[in-house]
Design a protein around this nucleic acid. Sequence first.
DNA 1: AAGTGGTCTAGACCACGGA
DNA 2: CCGTGGTCTAGACCACTTC
Lengths: 243, 243
Amino acid sequence: MIKNKPHSVPLYRQAAQRVLARLQKNEWQEGEALPNEFELATQHQVSQGTMRKALDVLVEEGLLFRRQGAGTFVAACLDSVGEASAALLVDSAVKEKIRFEYIGLAKVHANEQMASELAVRRGCPVWQITRLLRVGGSLFGLDQAFLPEARFPELSMKLLRQDNANLTRICRINFGLYLTEREVRYRAVMPGIEEIKILQADNGVPFLERIRVMHDTEGQPVLCGITMLKTNDFAFCPYIRNI
Amino acid sequence: MIKNKPHSVPLYRQAAQRVLARLQKNEWQEGEALPNEFELATQHQVSQGTMRKALDVLVEEGLLFRRQGAGTFVAACLDSVGEASAALLVDSAVKEKIRFEYIGLAKVHANEQMASELAVRRGCPVWQITRLLRVGGSLFGLDQAFLPEARFPELSMKLLRQDNANLTRICRINFGLYLTEREVRYRAVMPGIEEIKILQADNGVPFLERIRVMHDTEGQPVLCGITMLKTNDFAFCPYIRNI
DNA sequence: AAGTGGTCTAGACCACGGA
DNA sequence: CCGTGGTCTAGACCACTTC
Protein backbone atom coordinates (compact mmCIF):
# COMPACT_ATOMS: atom_id res chain seq x y z
CA MET A 1 0.00 0.00 0.00
CA ILE A 2 1.35 3.38 -0.93
CA LYS A 3 1.58 5.56 2.12
CA ASN A 4 -0.60 8.63 2.01
CA LYS A 5 -1.20 9.39 5.67
CA PRO A 6 1.07 10.12 8.57
CA HIS A 7 1.94 6.85 10.23
CA SER A 8 0.75 7.86 13.64
CA VAL A 9 -0.88 4.44 13.87
CA PRO A 10 1.06 1.65 12.12
CA LEU A 11 -0.61 0.04 9.14
CA TYR A 12 -0.70 -3.38 10.77
CA ARG A 13 -2.64 -1.95 13.72
CA GLN A 14 -5.08 -0.23 11.39
CA ALA A 15 -5.53 -3.52 9.58
CA ALA A 16 -6.05 -5.33 12.89
CA GLN A 17 -8.72 -2.79 13.82
CA ARG A 18 -10.52 -3.34 10.53
CA VAL A 19 -10.47 -7.10 10.87
CA LEU A 20 -11.70 -6.71 14.45
CA ALA A 21 -14.56 -4.59 13.17
CA ARG A 22 -15.52 -7.40 10.80
CA LEU A 23 -15.35 -9.88 13.67
CA GLN A 24 -17.60 -7.68 15.76
CA LYS A 25 -20.14 -7.72 12.97
CA ASN A 26 -20.08 -11.52 13.26
CA GLU A 27 -18.96 -11.79 9.66
CA TRP A 28 -17.53 -15.22 10.54
CA GLN A 29 -18.82 -17.66 13.10
CA GLU A 30 -16.93 -19.27 15.94
CA GLY A 31 -14.59 -21.90 14.52
CA GLU A 32 -15.00 -20.66 10.96
CA ALA A 33 -11.94 -19.91 8.82
CA LEU A 34 -11.17 -16.37 7.71
CA PRO A 35 -10.00 -15.74 4.15
CA ASN A 36 -6.32 -16.59 3.77
CA GLU A 37 -3.60 -14.07 4.54
CA PHE A 38 -3.04 -13.03 0.94
CA GLU A 39 -6.77 -12.57 0.35
CA LEU A 40 -7.19 -10.50 3.52
CA ALA A 41 -4.10 -8.50 2.58
CA THR A 42 -5.56 -7.68 -0.82
CA GLN A 43 -8.93 -6.79 0.68
CA HIS A 44 -7.30 -4.35 3.08
CA GLN A 45 -4.66 -3.07 0.68
CA VAL A 46 -1.59 -4.19 2.58
CA SER A 47 1.10 -6.77 1.96
CA GLN A 48 0.84 -10.31 3.25
CA GLY A 49 3.55 -9.63 5.85
CA THR A 50 1.64 -6.68 7.24
CA MET A 51 -1.66 -8.56 7.33
CA ARG A 52 0.13 -11.40 9.06
CA LYS A 53 1.33 -8.99 11.73
CA ALA A 54 -2.21 -7.65 12.07
CA LEU A 55 -3.52 -11.18 12.59
CA ASP A 56 -0.70 -11.76 15.09
CA VAL A 57 -2.27 -9.03 17.24
CA LEU A 58 -5.69 -10.69 17.19
CA VAL A 59 -4.18 -14.14 17.80
CA GLU A 60 -2.24 -12.73 20.73
CA GLU A 61 -5.48 -11.36 22.19
CA GLY A 62 -7.05 -14.78 21.86
CA LEU A 63 -9.65 -13.76 19.27
CA LEU A 64 -8.25 -15.91 16.49
CA PHE A 65 -6.14 -19.05 16.25
CA ARG A 66 -4.12 -20.51 13.42
CA ARG A 67 -3.48 -24.00 12.14
CA GLN A 68 -0.56 -24.30 9.79
CA GLY A 69 -1.59 -25.49 6.40
CA ALA A 70 -5.25 -25.16 7.24
CA GLY A 71 -6.13 -21.54 7.93
CA THR A 72 -6.90 -18.84 10.46
CA PHE A 73 -10.03 -19.38 12.54
CA VAL A 74 -12.31 -17.52 14.91
CA ALA A 75 -11.46 -18.72 18.41
CA ALA A 76 -14.03 -20.23 20.73
CA CYS A 77 -15.11 -17.99 23.59
CA LEU A 78 -13.80 -19.22 26.88
CA ASP A 79 -15.42 -17.75 29.90
CA SER A 80 -12.71 -16.18 32.01
CA VAL A 81 -13.60 -18.42 34.93
CA GLY A 82 -13.53 -21.47 32.75
CA GLU A 83 -10.08 -20.83 31.36
CA ALA A 84 -8.46 -21.68 34.66
CA SER A 85 -7.98 -25.12 36.05
CA ALA A 86 -7.77 -26.62 39.48
CA ALA A 87 -5.12 -28.93 40.88
CA LEU A 88 -5.92 -31.67 43.34
CA LEU A 89 -3.72 -31.06 46.35
CA VAL A 90 -2.78 -34.64 47.11
CA ASP A 91 -0.98 -34.81 43.80
CA SER A 92 -0.12 -31.52 42.17
CA ALA A 93 0.06 -33.19 38.77
CA VAL A 94 -3.66 -33.82 38.51
CA LYS A 95 -5.33 -30.88 36.82
CA GLU A 96 -9.00 -30.50 36.07
CA LYS A 97 -10.96 -27.84 34.25
CA ILE A 98 -13.33 -25.70 36.24
CA ARG A 99 -16.90 -25.76 34.99
CA PHE A 100 -19.65 -23.36 35.89
CA GLU A 101 -23.38 -23.42 36.21
CA TYR A 102 -25.61 -20.38 35.89
CA ILE A 103 -27.98 -19.98 38.81
CA GLY A 104 -29.25 -16.41 38.91
CA LEU A 105 -29.62 -12.90 37.55
CA ALA A 106 -30.56 -9.79 39.51
CA LYS A 107 -30.54 -6.05 38.98
CA VAL A 108 -28.84 -4.34 41.92
CA HIS A 109 -27.38 -0.93 42.71
CA ALA A 110 -23.63 -0.41 42.50
CA ASN A 111 -21.98 -0.20 45.87
CA GLU A 112 -18.84 1.83 46.37
CA GLN A 113 -16.54 -0.94 45.23
CA MET A 114 -18.46 -1.82 42.07
CA ALA A 115 -18.87 1.85 41.19
CA SER A 116 -15.11 2.24 41.37
CA GLU A 117 -14.32 -0.99 39.48
CA LEU A 118 -16.81 -0.37 36.69
CA ALA A 119 -16.31 3.39 36.50
CA VAL A 120 -19.97 4.17 37.13
CA ARG A 121 -21.70 6.27 39.79
CA ARG A 122 -22.62 4.74 43.10
CA GLY A 123 -26.17 3.46 43.01
CA CYS A 124 -26.14 2.96 39.24
CA PRO A 125 -28.08 -0.14 38.17
CA VAL A 126 -25.79 -3.11 37.52
CA TRP A 127 -26.53 -6.69 36.61
CA GLN A 128 -25.45 -9.34 39.10
CA ILE A 129 -24.96 -12.77 37.58
CA THR A 130 -24.44 -15.69 39.94
CA ARG A 131 -22.82 -18.97 39.00
CA LEU A 132 -21.67 -22.06 40.80
CA LEU A 133 -18.25 -23.48 40.07
CA ARG A 134 -17.56 -27.18 39.99
CA VAL A 135 -14.48 -29.28 39.56
CA GLY A 136 -15.00 -32.92 38.92
CA GLY A 137 -18.30 -33.55 40.65
CA SER A 138 -17.75 -31.38 43.68
CA LEU A 139 -18.71 -27.83 44.51
CA PHE A 140 -15.64 -25.62 44.25
CA GLY A 141 -16.84 -22.05 44.49
CA LEU A 142 -19.24 -19.25 43.75
CA ASP A 143 -18.79 -16.57 41.13
CA GLN A 144 -20.62 -13.27 40.99
CA ALA A 145 -20.18 -11.08 37.94
CA PHE A 146 -21.27 -7.46 37.80
CA LEU A 147 -21.95 -5.54 34.59
CA PRO A 148 -23.28 -1.99 34.14
CA GLU A 149 -26.92 -2.20 33.10
CA ALA A 150 -26.56 0.77 30.76
CA ARG A 151 -24.33 -1.19 28.40
CA PHE A 152 -26.43 -4.36 28.49
CA PRO A 153 -30.05 -3.22 28.39
CA GLU A 154 -31.28 -6.41 26.77
CA LEU A 155 -29.70 -8.87 29.17
CA SER A 156 -32.19 -11.47 30.32
CA MET A 157 -32.38 -14.81 32.04
CA LYS A 158 -33.29 -16.36 28.71
CA LEU A 159 -30.13 -15.00 27.08
CA LEU A 160 -28.05 -16.24 30.00
CA ARG A 161 -29.56 -19.70 29.98
CA GLN A 162 -28.49 -20.27 26.41
CA ASP A 163 -24.93 -21.40 26.51
CA ASN A 164 -25.01 -21.58 30.32
CA ALA A 165 -24.07 -17.92 30.84
CA ASN A 166 -20.72 -17.89 29.12
CA LEU A 167 -20.29 -14.17 29.62
CA THR A 168 -17.42 -13.81 27.19
CA ARG A 169 -19.47 -15.34 24.41
CA ILE A 170 -22.61 -13.39 25.26
CA CYS A 171 -20.66 -10.14 25.20
CA ARG A 172 -19.14 -11.07 21.85
CA ILE A 173 -22.15 -12.47 20.04
CA ASN A 174 -24.92 -10.34 21.43
CA PHE A 175 -23.14 -7.08 22.16
CA GLY A 176 -20.12 -7.08 19.80
CA LEU A 177 -17.80 -6.68 22.78
CA TYR A 178 -14.44 -8.42 23.01
CA LEU A 179 -13.33 -8.62 26.62
CA THR A 180 -9.81 -8.91 27.95
CA GLU A 181 -8.69 -9.39 31.52
CA ARG A 182 -7.03 -6.32 32.85
CA GLU A 183 -6.44 -7.00 36.49
CA VAL A 184 -6.75 -9.78 39.04
CA ARG A 185 -6.51 -9.60 42.82
CA TYR A 186 -6.35 -12.41 45.36
CA ARG A 187 -7.16 -12.53 49.06
CA ALA A 188 -7.87 -15.08 51.73
CA VAL A 189 -11.12 -14.40 53.57
CA MET A 190 -13.55 -16.05 55.96
CA PRO A 191 -16.85 -16.72 54.21
CA GLY A 192 -20.12 -15.12 55.26
CA ILE A 193 -23.12 -17.15 56.39
CA GLU A 194 -24.67 -17.01 52.93
CA GLU A 195 -21.59 -18.41 51.26
CA ILE A 196 -21.15 -21.15 53.83
CA LYS A 197 -24.70 -22.24 53.14
CA ILE A 198 -24.49 -22.15 49.36
CA LEU A 199 -21.13 -23.87 49.21
CA GLN A 200 -21.79 -26.36 51.99
CA ALA A 201 -18.60 -25.36 53.76
CA ASP A 202 -17.47 -26.22 57.28
CA ASN A 203 -17.14 -23.51 59.88
CA GLY A 204 -13.74 -21.89 60.25
CA VAL A 205 -12.58 -22.84 56.78
CA PRO A 206 -11.04 -19.92 54.85
CA PHE A 207 -11.93 -19.08 51.23
CA LEU A 208 -9.87 -17.82 48.38
CA GLU A 209 -11.30 -14.57 47.01
CA ARG A 210 -10.45 -13.68 43.42
CA ILE A 211 -11.50 -10.37 41.93
CA ARG A 212 -11.12 -9.84 38.21
CA VAL A 213 -11.77 -6.82 36.04
CA MET A 214 -12.38 -7.16 32.31
CA HIS A 215 -12.14 -4.38 29.75
CA ASP A 216 -13.41 -3.93 26.22
CA THR A 217 -11.07 -3.22 23.34
CA GLU A 218 -11.33 0.50 24.06
CA GLY A 219 -10.02 0.00 27.59
CA GLN A 220 -13.33 0.66 29.34
CA PRO A 221 -14.16 -1.57 32.31
CA VAL A 222 -17.14 -3.77 31.47
CA LEU A 223 -17.22 -6.62 33.95
CA CYS A 224 -16.10 -7.18 37.51
CA GLY A 225 -16.22 -10.67 38.93
CA ILE A 226 -15.85 -11.80 42.51
CA THR A 227 -15.10 -15.46 42.90
CA MET A 228 -15.10 -17.29 46.24
CA LEU A 229 -13.26 -20.59 46.15
CA LYS A 230 -13.19 -23.47 48.61
CA THR A 231 -9.56 -24.56 48.38
CA ASN A 232 -9.58 -27.47 50.80
CA ASP A 233 -9.12 -30.15 48.19
CA PHE A 234 -8.15 -28.18 45.10
CA ALA A 235 -5.86 -25.24 44.49
CA PHE A 236 -6.66 -22.60 41.90
CA CYS A 237 -4.30 -22.57 38.88
CA PRO A 238 -4.77 -19.48 36.73
CA TYR A 239 -2.44 -20.85 34.06
CA ILE A 240 0.21 -23.36 33.22
CA ARG A 241 2.84 -22.08 30.88
CA ASN A 242 3.89 -24.63 28.33
CA ILE A 243 7.50 -24.84 27.30
CA MET B 1 21.78 -16.24 4.79
CA ILE B 2 21.74 -18.93 2.16
CA LYS B 3 19.88 -21.92 3.42
CA ASN B 4 21.99 -25.04 3.71
CA LYS B 5 20.32 -27.04 6.47
CA PRO B 6 16.87 -28.48 6.88
CA HIS B 7 14.71 -25.91 8.59
CA SER B 8 13.58 -28.15 11.37
CA VAL B 9 14.25 -25.22 13.70
CA PRO B 10 13.49 -21.81 12.18
CA LEU B 11 16.45 -19.52 11.68
CA TYR B 12 15.07 -16.89 14.03
CA ARG B 13 14.89 -19.42 16.85
CA GLN B 14 18.42 -20.55 16.18
CA ALA B 15 19.51 -16.93 16.27
CA ALA B 16 17.60 -16.39 19.54
CA GLN B 17 19.39 -19.39 21.03
CA ARG B 18 22.77 -18.01 20.03
CA VAL B 19 22.04 -14.59 21.48
CA LEU B 20 20.79 -16.30 24.64
CA ALA B 21 24.07 -18.21 24.85
CA ARG B 22 25.94 -14.91 24.71
CA LEU B 23 23.69 -13.51 27.44
CA GLN B 24 24.36 -16.54 29.60
CA LYS B 25 28.08 -15.89 29.25
CA ASN B 26 27.38 -12.42 30.66
CA GLU B 27 28.73 -10.85 27.52
CA TRP B 28 26.69 -7.76 28.35
CA GLN B 29 25.77 -6.48 31.78
CA GLU B 30 22.34 -5.67 33.10
CA GLY B 31 21.14 -2.44 31.53
CA GLU B 32 23.83 -2.49 28.86
CA ALA B 33 22.90 -2.10 25.19
CA LEU B 34 23.44 -4.95 22.75
CA PRO B 35 24.85 -4.22 19.29
CA ASN B 36 22.14 -2.85 17.01
CA GLU B 37 19.88 -5.12 15.02
CA PHE B 38 21.86 -4.85 11.78
CA GLU B 39 25.15 -5.53 13.56
CA LEU B 40 23.74 -8.57 15.38
CA ALA B 41 22.18 -9.75 12.12
CA THR B 42 25.55 -9.57 10.37
CA GLN B 43 27.30 -11.33 13.25
CA HIS B 44 24.84 -14.20 13.09
CA GLN B 45 24.49 -14.27 9.33
CA VAL B 46 20.81 -13.50 9.11
CA SER B 47 18.81 -10.56 7.82
CA GLN B 48 17.75 -7.72 10.10
CA GLY B 49 14.14 -8.86 9.97
CA THR B 50 15.08 -12.32 11.16
CA MET B 51 17.32 -10.98 13.94
CA ARG B 52 14.50 -8.69 14.97
CA LYS B 53 12.21 -11.70 15.29
CA ALA B 54 14.88 -13.47 17.33
CA LEU B 55 15.12 -10.50 19.68
CA ASP B 56 11.31 -10.46 19.86
CA VAL B 57 11.51 -13.88 21.46
CA LEU B 58 13.95 -12.74 24.12
CA VAL B 59 12.02 -9.56 24.74
CA GLU B 60 8.86 -11.62 25.14
CA GLU B 61 10.61 -13.76 27.74
CA GLY B 62 11.60 -10.64 29.63
CA LEU B 63 15.34 -11.03 29.10
CA LEU B 64 15.74 -7.92 26.96
CA PHE B 65 13.89 -4.68 26.51
CA ARG B 66 13.92 -2.11 23.72
CA ARG B 67 13.79 1.65 23.60
CA GLN B 68 12.97 3.07 20.22
CA GLY B 69 15.76 5.20 18.86
CA ALA B 70 18.10 4.16 21.66
CA GLY B 71 18.78 0.43 21.45
CA THR B 72 18.12 -3.03 22.83
CA PHE B 73 19.16 -3.60 26.43
CA VAL B 74 19.65 -6.40 28.92
CA ALA B 75 16.66 -6.31 31.26
CA ALA B 76 17.02 -5.95 35.00
CA CYS B 77 16.34 -9.14 36.93
CA LEU B 78 13.11 -8.88 38.82
CA ASP B 79 12.66 -11.44 41.48
CA SER B 80 9.42 -13.25 40.77
CA VAL B 81 8.00 -12.18 44.10
CA GLY B 82 8.98 -8.60 43.49
CA GLU B 83 7.29 -8.36 40.12
CA ALA B 84 3.87 -8.41 41.68
CA SER B 85 2.23 -5.54 43.44
CA ALA B 86 -0.29 -5.22 46.20
CA ALA B 87 -3.47 -3.17 46.28
CA LEU B 88 -4.72 -1.48 49.38
CA LEU B 89 -8.22 -2.73 49.95
CA VAL B 90 -9.85 0.52 51.02
CA ASP B 91 -9.16 1.93 47.56
CA SER B 92 -8.39 -0.56 44.85
CA ALA B 93 -6.57 2.09 42.84
CA VAL B 94 -3.65 2.34 45.24
CA LYS B 95 -0.96 -0.10 44.16
CA GLU B 96 2.38 -0.65 45.83
CA LYS B 97 5.33 -2.78 44.91
CA ILE B 98 6.14 -5.71 47.14
CA ARG B 99 9.68 -5.66 48.52
CA PHE B 100 11.49 -8.56 50.14
CA GLU B 101 14.14 -9.03 52.75
CA TYR B 102 16.41 -12.05 52.96
CA ILE B 103 16.44 -13.62 56.41
CA GLY B 104 17.77 -17.17 56.13
CA LEU B 105 19.30 -20.10 54.27
CA ALA B 106 19.17 -23.76 55.28
CA LYS B 107 19.90 -27.10 53.69
CA VAL B 108 16.95 -29.45 54.14
CA HIS B 109 15.73 -32.73 52.69
CA ALA B 110 13.06 -32.70 50.01
CA ASN B 111 9.68 -33.76 51.31
CA GLU B 112 7.19 -35.48 49.05
CA GLN B 113 5.80 -32.23 47.65
CA MET B 114 9.17 -30.64 46.91
CA ALA B 115 10.48 -33.84 45.37
CA SER B 116 7.53 -33.83 43.01
CA GLU B 117 7.73 -30.10 42.20
CA LEU B 118 11.48 -30.08 41.60
CA ALA B 119 11.65 -33.51 39.94
CA VAL B 120 14.16 -34.88 42.46
CA ARG B 121 14.04 -37.91 44.77
CA ARG B 122 12.47 -37.63 48.18
CA GLY B 123 15.15 -36.81 50.76
CA CYS B 124 17.42 -35.13 48.24
CA PRO B 125 19.22 -32.11 49.68
CA VAL B 126 17.53 -28.84 48.73
CA TRP B 127 18.25 -25.27 49.69
CA GLN B 128 15.56 -23.44 51.61
CA ILE B 129 15.73 -19.67 51.32
CA THR B 130 13.50 -17.63 53.59
CA ARG B 131 12.47 -14.06 52.95
CA LEU B 132 10.09 -11.57 54.50
CA LEU B 133 7.77 -9.59 52.26
CA ARG B 134 6.85 -6.01 52.94
CA VAL B 135 4.53 -3.55 51.34
CA GLY B 136 4.88 0.03 52.39
CA GLY B 137 6.25 -0.29 55.88
CA SER B 138 4.19 -3.24 56.99
CA LEU B 139 4.82 -6.97 57.06
CA PHE B 140 2.89 -8.59 54.25
CA GLY B 141 4.08 -12.15 54.06
CA LEU B 142 6.69 -14.86 54.15
CA ASP B 143 8.34 -16.50 51.16
CA GLN B 144 10.20 -19.78 51.16
CA ALA B 145 12.03 -20.81 48.01
CA PHE B 146 13.38 -24.31 47.45
CA LEU B 147 16.15 -25.18 45.00
CA PRO B 148 17.85 -28.52 44.39
CA GLU B 149 21.28 -28.43 46.03
CA ALA B 150 22.84 -30.43 43.21
CA ARG B 151 22.38 -27.58 40.75
CA PHE B 152 23.57 -24.88 43.12
CA PRO B 153 26.56 -26.34 44.98
CA GLU B 154 28.13 -22.96 45.62
CA LEU B 155 25.11 -21.24 47.10
CA SER B 156 26.00 -19.45 50.32
CA MET B 157 24.67 -16.88 52.72
CA LYS B 158 27.28 -14.48 51.43
CA LEU B 159 26.05 -14.86 47.88
CA LEU B 160 22.47 -14.38 49.02
CA ARG B 161 23.25 -11.31 51.06
CA GLN B 162 24.61 -9.52 48.04
CA ASP B 163 21.67 -8.03 46.23
CA ASN B 164 19.32 -9.08 49.04
CA ALA B 165 18.70 -12.58 47.64
CA ASN B 166 17.20 -11.67 44.30
CA LEU B 167 17.00 -15.28 43.18
CA THR B 168 16.37 -14.52 39.54
CA ARG B 169 19.50 -12.41 39.36
CA ILE B 170 21.61 -14.90 41.31
CA CYS B 171 20.54 -17.70 38.99
CA ARG B 172 21.37 -15.59 35.97
CA ILE B 173 24.64 -14.02 37.03
CA ASN B 174 26.15 -16.82 39.09
CA PHE B 175 24.71 -19.89 37.43
CA GLY B 176 23.89 -18.76 33.88
CA LEU B 177 20.27 -19.82 34.37
CA TYR B 178 17.35 -17.89 32.98
CA LEU B 179 14.19 -18.71 34.89
CA THR B 180 10.62 -18.45 33.71
CA GLU B 181 7.44 -18.98 35.68
CA ARG B 182 5.68 -22.13 34.61
CA GLU B 183 2.87 -22.57 37.04
CA VAL B 184 1.18 -20.82 39.93
CA ARG B 185 -1.36 -22.15 42.41
CA TYR B 186 -3.41 -20.29 44.96
CA ARG B 187 -5.13 -21.43 48.15
CA ALA B 188 -6.57 -19.95 51.32
CA VAL B 189 -5.17 -21.55 54.47
CA MET B 190 -5.00 -21.04 58.20
CA PRO B 191 -1.43 -20.25 59.26
CA GLY B 192 0.60 -22.46 61.58
CA ILE B 193 1.96 -21.26 64.92
CA GLU B 194 5.35 -20.50 63.38
CA GLU B 195 3.87 -18.30 60.70
CA ILE B 196 1.60 -16.48 63.12
CA LYS B 197 4.63 -15.64 65.22
CA ILE B 198 6.86 -14.51 62.36
CA LEU B 199 4.18 -12.46 60.65
CA GLN B 200 2.65 -11.07 63.85
CA ALA B 201 -0.78 -12.18 62.77
CA ASP B 202 -3.95 -12.34 64.82
CA ASN B 203 -5.55 -15.66 65.61
CA GLY B 204 -8.21 -16.92 63.23
CA VAL B 205 -7.02 -14.79 60.31
CA PRO B 206 -6.65 -16.75 57.05
CA PHE B 207 -3.60 -16.50 54.79
CA LEU B 208 -3.23 -16.56 51.05
CA GLU B 209 -0.88 -19.34 49.96
CA ARG B 210 0.81 -18.96 46.60
CA ILE B 211 2.93 -21.72 45.16
CA ARG B 212 5.05 -20.98 42.10
CA VAL B 213 7.26 -23.23 40.03
CA MET B 214 10.05 -21.80 37.88
CA HIS B 215 11.78 -23.57 35.02
CA ASP B 216 15.05 -22.99 33.18
CA THR B 217 15.15 -22.48 29.43
CA GLU B 218 15.32 -26.24 28.93
CA GLY B 219 12.06 -26.75 30.79
CA GLN B 220 13.57 -28.31 33.89
CA PRO B 221 12.06 -27.24 37.22
CA VAL B 222 14.62 -25.27 39.20
CA LEU B 223 12.79 -23.39 41.90
CA CYS B 224 9.63 -23.88 43.91
CA GLY B 225 8.43 -21.06 46.08
CA ILE B 226 5.75 -21.07 48.76
CA THR B 227 4.50 -17.65 49.73
CA MET B 228 2.20 -16.98 52.67
CA LEU B 229 0.44 -13.62 52.49
CA LYS B 230 -1.50 -11.69 55.10
CA THR B 231 -4.27 -10.17 52.99
CA ASN B 232 -6.12 -8.18 55.64
CA ASP B 233 -5.13 -4.79 54.35
CA PHE B 234 -3.70 -5.58 50.93
CA ALA B 235 -4.74 -7.88 48.14
CA PHE B 236 -2.19 -9.65 45.96
CA CYS B 237 -2.09 -8.44 42.32
CA PRO B 238 -0.02 -10.70 40.09
CA TYR B 239 -0.31 -8.29 37.18
CA ILE B 240 -2.09 -5.37 35.71
CA ARG B 241 -2.49 -5.48 31.98
CA ASN B 242 -1.98 -2.14 30.35
CA ILE B 243 -4.16 -1.17 27.41
C1' DA C 1 -1.42 -31.55 -6.14
C1' DA C 2 -3.31 -27.44 -4.39
C1' DG C 3 -3.87 -24.28 -0.79
C1' DT C 4 -2.66 -22.58 3.66
C1' DG C 5 0.20 -20.67 7.37
C1' DG C 6 5.29 -19.93 8.45
C1' DT C 7 9.84 -18.20 7.37
C1' DC C 8 13.25 -15.43 5.13
C1' DT C 9 15.48 -11.81 2.41
C1' DA C 10 17.02 -7.23 0.67
C1' DG C 11 16.03 -2.96 0.57
C1' DA C 12 13.40 1.07 1.76
C1' DC C 13 11.53 4.54 4.72
C1' DC C 14 9.66 6.41 9.22
C1' DA C 15 9.85 8.00 14.18
C1' DC C 16 12.26 8.58 18.10
C1' DG C 17 16.44 9.54 21.21
C1' DG C 18 20.51 11.61 22.19
C1' DA C 19 24.58 14.35 21.08
C1' DC D 1 22.41 15.65 12.99
C1' DC D 2 23.11 10.58 13.18
C1' DG D 3 22.08 6.02 14.93
C1' DT D 4 18.57 3.29 16.73
C1' DG D 5 14.34 0.53 16.79
C1' DG D 6 9.90 0.11 14.11
C1' DT D 7 7.34 -0.61 9.86
C1' DC D 8 6.45 -2.08 5.20
C1' DT D 9 6.92 -4.30 0.68
C1' DA D 10 7.43 -7.81 -3.01
C1' DG D 11 8.76 -11.89 -3.89
C1' DA D 12 10.51 -16.38 -2.72
C1' DC D 13 10.49 -20.81 -0.65
C1' DC D 14 9.25 -24.26 3.11
C1' DA D 15 6.11 -27.28 5.92
C1' DC D 16 1.87 -28.74 6.83
C1' DT D 17 -3.18 -30.05 5.85
C1' DT D 18 -6.52 -31.46 2.92
C1' DC D 19 -8.33 -33.62 -0.90
